[in-house]
Simulated scan of single mutants.
Amino acid sequence: MTRALPRVFLLPGIGGDEPGLANLRSELADSADFVLVDHPDIDRPSAEIRDFAGIVARAVARIHDVEPSGKVNIAGYSFGAQVAFAAACELQEQGREVGLLALFDSRALSLSVAGRRVSNSDEASGPVRTIADVASRLLIAGGLAEPLRRAIPAVGSVFGKPASLGLRRLLLQNLRGRSLAGHRTGHFDGTIVLFRAGEQHIAGLPHDLGWSAHCAEVRGVELRGGHNSLFRAENLAENAALIRSAIARPLSAGS
């Protein structure tokens, strides 16, 4: 009888389930049964998209639905790592045991370098994207998130799918980013397996990205590439091999 693969609940980044993460799941299909736990998307009200406590509660409920008892394994990328960590803490408080907690290139919210708080962000972008990002932030701050959200289908009809996808990502990025404001990172009574991008565009970041203050132990693994390129074709096979090796032990202990 073939033994079932260990199940891992996977929380995606700020843009949701994107091709790179799907490629990673496919590459690791021999090692784990991934269950995607996505966040409220653009079809939901903006207040729900930027409600971090609600996002975490939704993730925890989904985990309970699929895995009602026993040990659970959780992984998260970027923004999803923040959700994964908070969900793991909540599950522990509820008496559930967390086996694997894997975080992909996400900085603890408490992290500071040279006395300055370091926020989670993508790699540096060009001037056009920067201007669009600032405009999106101003519209959200001005209370126009809902009209902007509802306008996305019309933008696609007039300017094409790439324009609507770009607007969707900007809106999600800024709404979900705002959800972290004021959130206090808890403490996880266990080990974090931290996969850190080898290329960091901010100098002086500690290897643990600030997570040691919030858990019993951090086991760091450096991956090839930057935050946005970890799972691209040129890095996928090598990084998947490193990930497979790093998660094998905690998954086998959790089975």
Rank of each mutant, 00 (worst) to 15 (best):
A114P: 00
G54T: 09
L36P: 00
L251G: 04
A84P: 05
A181Q: 10
L24P: 08
S78A: 10
G226K: 00
T191S: 13
I49D: 04
E234G: 08
D41V: 10
A75S: 11
G95N: 12
F188S: 05
Q94A: 15
R178D: 12
A108Q: 04
G95E: 05
A22N: 12
H214L: 10
E123A: 12
L11R: 01
R176D: 00
P6F: 05
G70F: 05
P153M: 10
L230R: 10
A248N: 12
G226F: 00
P19R: 02
S31P: 03
A151W: 03
I49G: 04
A135V: 12
F159Q: 15
A181F: 06
R196I: 13
V113K: 02
D105Q: 06
S179Y: 00
P206R: 01
A233N: 10
S125I: 14
A241H: 08
L165E: 15
Q92L: 04
I63M: 07
R137V: 12
V128F: 13
L172C: 09
N73F: 03
P40Q: 07
S26I: 05
F85C: 06
A53V: 11
D105M: 07
G186I: 00
L91V: 07
K161L: 14
L5D: 04
A216M: 01
F34I: 03
Q173H: 08
